[in-house]
Design a protein around this nucleic acid. Sequence first.
DNA 1: TCATTTTGGAACAATTATGTTCCATACAGA
DNA 2: TCTGTATGGAACATAATTGTTCCAAAATGA
Lengths: 197, 197
Amino acid sequence: MAKDTRSTILTAAAAVLVKNPGATLAEIGSEAGVGRTTLHRYFPKRDDLLRALILASLRDIDDATADLADADQDAAARLLTVLEVLVPLGDRCHFLWLSPRAYEHEEAAAHYQRQLQQMEALADDLKREGWLGDDVPTRWFVAAMDSLIYTAWYDVENGYLAKREAPRLVHRTLLGQLGPKRADARTLATPSPGVPR
Amino acid sequence: MAKDTRSTILTAAAAVLVKNPGATLAEIGSEAGVGRTTLHRYFPKRDDLLRALILASLRDIDDATADLADADQDAAARLLTVLEVLVPLGDRCHFLWLSPRAYEHEEAAAHYQRQLQQMEALADDLKREGWLGDDVPTRWFVAAMDSLIYTAWYDVENGYLAKREAPRLVHRTLLGQLGPKRADARTLATPSPGVPR
DNA sequence: TCATTTTGGAACAATTATGTTCCATACAGA
DNA sequence: TCTGTATGGAACATAATTGTTCCAAAATGA
């Protein structure tokens, strides 16, 4: 079963490389339960493996988020759906996030751009529908979402967070309901002190 | 000026290593504007450099957060103060965050524990004072804070976020005021669908 | 200026990771 | 069982990185 081994290796590589981006091919191989020889058979050079992993990750994310655009739910509900899909892919997302090389190849760059735009569009919808403050930089929202997705994935992976709870927690953090029930909401006393420094 | 070179190297190392944890000693040296020979003079082995960097980072963070405990402000204001101090140290924080080896040495482990407890205590205060939902896992709050600090640092570093705005944005994200003004606050329609799957 | 310290380049050895080849073995399906 | 394919180990060549040594040049400071 050739194709199976290939994706086994990719999965293992993702697992090892998020923890230690400088991991050895031997380590990756052993994580995949595969000899280094076999690994080289599928991916002649280290670089081939990395490129394949980037593409596979982008494709996984694409697949997962493909049929979200046309949902007739409101933006906040769509965000939750996205999170439910992406949190389990947190390692893949994070691997891309810390791969500056991700854009180097055309196909990858295209996927990446598309995904970014999708998220920006979602952020805009959230603003339009009143879920997100108009004054929040879209870029901040997207960046925060990326990093919280990985954080949530990490905590799930390490048993600190329930798999089912994670997406909702990210959602709540992003859309500003981490505070207590809104009845007794409080506001910051000091408007914006600024550091004297 | 011996001590100066040493800290120059450490600073450069932090800068290089957050971007690329597998960076070469030559790269670090050249970033620091220092020959590889000199680098080896201060840190005989690569490991010595890493350990020193971990300790220095922990100490910087310690110093920065030392005099926050006794402030007589409310917890939310104290959080903002912490963020104002930590966001500029985002690279240092993140370097630790992705150094599993950080605990290996006693002193480092002690610092780390102390800082963690400090943050957990702050989270508890936030809950007590009603800024943070009681049902939010403390661990999630701390993890989210860590990751948002780095995200903010990164965006500042790359010119996407104003240095002065960053801490407030993190603050707002964490304490749930990313949403629009609370007058027209909206709530999620679907309580908790859960993924069928 | 002179003595001392700090530095950086060059050359080298040692180590570690990578990439390649070859062969014996295990395994799946006809 | 036989055959073709997939695999893993061993041995080897090749880089690349690290760690070391030595010396000359630059900087520092009395």
